[in-house]
């Protein structure tokens, strides 16, 4: 029996494809997340007058609240998906490092959350009459960094909460306070980018903080994930 050499990247890719394929077959979580994002965009239009200039000033905040809440629905499913038939046991038993399992799942979550965000973003532009495309590349960069922050901590907390009662409630309770710095940064930057102002020396501290947050929590998660999985 010849074992082919399976590189780390291919192990990550295998988990990543599996998660995406399983989700796209049923589309349960992504549909729920998308409809939730729409409902929130609608609700905000009642809370804040969409035609007011002040609403446009806080648009970054509104947008990231929509992203964070809708993303939570997807992240909740990440490890819960493995529970049904005790699939998590088989994944832990498989000869791949815990960090590869974690990265594959985190990347799959990232793609799913990004997909919801990229649908919600133009809708937001239409509903609130915001020309969000003027700083498109920088805006995308901020959204990618903010979303990765959300998915990396969300994925590890999804593993922490998978076996407990009230799983759906516990994930946001743990994840949102940790995410506050990243969300603050993403909100600040998004607000000014959506208003057409590029990132300058004034606010690039936020960008650095976002990058630092991503790097730091990715590293800590990769170190601790094996402990979370097998103790």
């Amino acid at each position: 029996m010849g074992y082919a050499r399976l590189g780390y990247a291919r192990q990550v890719a295998t988990i990543f494809t599996k998660d995406l394929r399983a989700e796209l077959r049923t589309k349960e979580a992504i549909n729920a997340s998308l409809s939730f994002a729409l409902v929130m965009l609608l609700l905000f239009s009642f809370a804040f007058d969409p035609s007011e200039e002040t609403t446009r000033e806080i648009s970054g905040g509104l947008l990231w609240i929509v992203f964070a809440f809708a993303g939570t629905l997807l992240l909740n499913r990440s490890f819960a998906r493995e529970l049904g038939n005790d699939c998590l046991d088989a994944l832990i038993a498989a000869p791949i490092p815990g960090s590869a399992l974690f990265l594959g799942k985190a990347l799959a979550n990232f793609v799913l959350v990004m997909a919801v965000e990229l649908i919600a973003l133009p809708l937001f532009g239409i509903f609130y009459n915001v020309k969000w495309t003027s700083q498109f590349p920088q805006l995308m960069m901020v959204i990618v960094l903010g979303t990765w922050a959300m998915t990396v901590t969300g994925t590890i907390f999804s593993a922490l909460t998978v076996n407990i009662r009230l799983r759906e409630v516990m994930l946001p309770i743990l994840n949102f306070p940790i995410l506050i710095p990243a969300l603050l940064g993403a909100m600040q930057l998004t607000s000014s980018l959506v208003a057409g102002k590029p990132i300058t020396a004034d606010n690039d501290a936020w960008l650095k903080m976002l990058i630092g947050f991503d790097v730091m929590y990715t590293a800590v998660s990769l170190v601790l994930v094996e402990t979370v999985l097998v103790g």
Binding site: T153, F157, L160, P177, I178, I180, P181, Y217, V220, V228
Partner: peptide, 22 residues
């Protein structure tokens, strides 16, 4: 104990980031 310890580490790392960002 294991999960709580992991979360405690995450929380502690967050403290300085929270303080500076706010």
């Amino acid at each position: 104990a294991t999960f709580a310890a992991v979360f405690s580490i995450f929380a502690f790392i967050d403290v300085p980031i929270v303080v500076f960002s706010i």
